[in-house]
Design a protein around this nucleic acid. Structure first.
Length: 285
DNA sequence: CTTATGACCTGCAAGC
DNA sequence: TGCTTGCAGGTCATAA
C-alpha cells in the first residue's frame, strides 16, 4: 500500500486496534519477512513476546509501534504488505508471513505480504533532529504531514539535486512519503513533466509542486487511500476510494480532466509515468 | 560525495 | 488451453 496516505490509514488502524495490548506469542511463517531483523526470526519472536504495544507512529512510508520495553517494532509494507487485524481462528491468508497473538485472547495482528518486499524488525530508537526514530528510519526525511516539516528546506533539497524532478520527488531522503502515484498526480497539478531538471525549477515552482504533493496526499487520506484491488486495504481489509479521483495515474488513453487530451504512459525506472502531453510538455532534449 | 541501474519476489492480464 | 511477456502503490546494494 504503500504510499504515505495508505500507510497512514494502516497506522491509524494499528493505533485503534492493537495499542495497549500485550503480545502473547509471535509466529514467523516466512523468514524473508524478518530479513531486516538481523538477529533472526527466533530473536524477533523472543524479544517481542511479553511486550505491550504502545503508540503507532509513522514517517513517510515507514511505520512503527512503540514497545513497553523501550524499543519499537518497525514495519515497511513494501509493494504488497498488509497489516490485518483478524479474529483468532480465521483462516490463514495465502501470504501470511507473521502472526502476533495477544494475552487478552482478542483479534490477532497479521502481516501479510504477497511479494515479500516489505517486512518487520525490532529497532532501537535514536534521536534525530529532536525526534525519536527507529535506527533504520534515521536517514528518511520528514514527510509533509509531519508537524515539524520544513517546506523551505524541502524545496531547497529538491532543487539541490542534479536529476529529473520526478526522481527527486521520489527520493525519500529529500521528502518522504511520495511514491509513483502521488508523484504523477502532483506533477500533473503543477503542470510539470517529470523529466524536467529539478535544479532548473524556480523556488516558487518547486514550492508549488510540493504543495500539490501535500494536498493530493491529504485528499487521498480523506478517501481512505488509493486501491485498485484487494492488495491495498486497511487493517479491517477495506479499500480506499481515492482511485476515482486520480487525474493521470493508471489513466492511459483516457482524457485529461483539464484539457481532454489523451493521457500518455511512458516507461520510467522499470515502471510507468502518466502525464498529459498538452498540460505537461516534455522538456527539450 | 552523487546519481543511475538492476535485484529482490509473486501473481495477474494480455497476447500469441 | 497453455505458454511467454510485461507489469505492479518500494527500497536497497552496487557501479560509475
Amino acid at each position: 500500500m504503500p504510499e504515505l496516505p495508505e500507510v497512514e490509514v494502516v497506522r491509524r488502524g494499528l493505533h485503534e486496534h492493537v495499542a495497549g495490548r500485550t503480545v502473547d506469542a509471535v509466529e514467523v511463517l516466512h523468514p524473508r519477512a524478518i530479513r531486516r531483523h538481523l538477529a533472526g526470526a527466533a530473536d524477533f519472536a523472543l524479544r517481542l513476546t511479553g511486550q505491550r504495544l504502545d503508540a503507532a507512529r509513522r514517517r513517510g512510508k515507514y511505520l512503527w509501534v512503540d514497545l513497553s520495553g523501550g524499543d519499537a517494532m518497525l514495519a515497511h509494507l513494501g509493494m504488497s504488505g498488509q497489516m490485518l487485524v483478524q479474529p483468532v481462528g480465521a483462516p490463514d491468508e495465502k501470504h501470511l508471513r507473521v502472526r502476533l497473538r495477544f494475552t487478552d485472547g482478542g483479534p490477532e495482528l497479521r502481516f501479510v505480504d504477497q511479494r515479500t518486499f516489505g517486512g518487520l524488525a525490532l529497532a532501537d530508537l535514536v534521536e534525530v533532529d529532536g525526534t525519536r526514530l527507529p535506527r533504520q528510519v534515521a536517514h528518511i526525511a520528514r514527510d509533509p504531514m509531519d508537524p515539524a516539516f520544513d517546506p523551505v528546506a524541502a524545496v531547497a533539497a529538491l532543487r539541490g539535486r542534479r536529476t529529473e524532478v520526478k526522481r527527486a520527488l521520489l527520493d525519500q531522503t529529500l521528502v518522504s512519503g511520495v511514491g509513483n502515484i502521488y508523484a504523477d498526480e502532483a506533477l500533473w497539478r503543477a503542470r510539470l513533466h517529470g523529466l524536467r531538471p529539478a535544479d532548473k525549477l524556480t523556488r516558487a515552482k518547486a514550492a508549488e509542486l510540493l504543495a500539490h504533493a501535500t494536498q493530493v496526499m491529504y485528499e487521498a487520506l480523506g478517501e481512505g487511500g488509493t486501491s485498485f484491488d484487494a492488495l491495498y486495504v486497511n487493517v479491517n481489509g477495506q479499500s480506499g476510494y481515492f482511485d476515482r479521483s486520480l487525474a493521470v495515474y493508471g489513466r492511459e488513453d483516457e482524457p485529461c480532466r483539464r484539457c481532454g487530451t489523451a493521457i500518455r504512459r511512458e516507461p520510467f525506472m522499470n515502471r510507468s509515468s502518466y502525464s498529459c502531453p498538452r498540460c505537461q510538455p516534455r522538456p527539450r532534449g
